[in-house]
Design a protein around this nucleic acid. Structure first.
Lengths: 118, 118
DNA sequence: GGCTTATATAAATGATCGTTTATATCAAGA
DNA sequence: TCTTGATATAAACGATCATTTATATAAGCC
């Protein structure tokens, strides 16, 4: 697996709000599933689903304690990476779908580019 | 837009091999569309499609020079973030879809958990 | 104005992914 | 072994997305 594919895999994993919220909530601590469910206001199966993805992709690892399962970040550097990425994400002004520069009314409408009847 | 959504947007943008290859190829330089097409071996419409996304999401910006359009990174920090992210992505051993710990033959098959006829 | 090269857009398609609903496993206690 | 609380899995659905194919715009040259 080359670098680009490794990065793709990581970024696809991180490209979901709920997974990001989970990671942020866990931080450098350990959190049980029910804590996450309550804190984030998501359904328990949904949280379990995302935790499974984060676990399979080795972002988190687990520790069982009685009936509870505690999730923890596997690599503390991830929080640094998120911080740096947030700087970049915040440096963009328009969060919309289209840069104004490319959403202008088409100039060619004012010229004779019509196929027929022009 | 909160931080988590900003990050989601950025990571979704970066969560594609071809876009990552484009970014890596551009690096700190300026590259025209045809240069990218040739270097990456992708179709021209595909490259244009990804460039549009990277442009609309303010990862790249453009400069026209005659018939050529040159693309350039908008924020140099992005390369640093990619470097740090690659460290994290490379620190995971198995790049497969499933952690062995959770792919084991189910224990409950050896016990009497069957609904009927057990 | 036509012709050529460079780049962008649109429609169509197949695949992937997040969420919900329903159900199953797991540990603990009586 | 039954019950209860905690967590995991599965099926189904809708939505999003990457890619291809086909076509349109833009600039430069004659």
């Amino acid at each position: 697996m080359d670098d680009a594919h490794k990065l793709q895999h990581l970024f696809q994993t991180l490209g979901d709000v709920n997974r990001l919220k989970i990671i942020k909530f866990i931080g450098n601590k350990e959190k049980s599933v029910s804590e996450i469910v309550e804190a984030l206001g998501l359904s328990q199966p949904l949280v379990s689903h995302h935790l499974r993805i984060l676990r399979e992709r080795e972002i988190l690892h687990t520790k069982r304690n009685g009936p509870f399962i505690y999730y923890k970040l596997k690599n503390g550097k991830l929080l640094d990476a998120l911080g740096l990425s947030l700087e970049i994400a915040s440096s963009t002004k328009s969060k919309g779908r289209c840069d104004p520069m490319f959403c202008c009314p088409p100039r060619w409408r004012t010229r004779s580019h019509k196929k027929k009847g022009g």
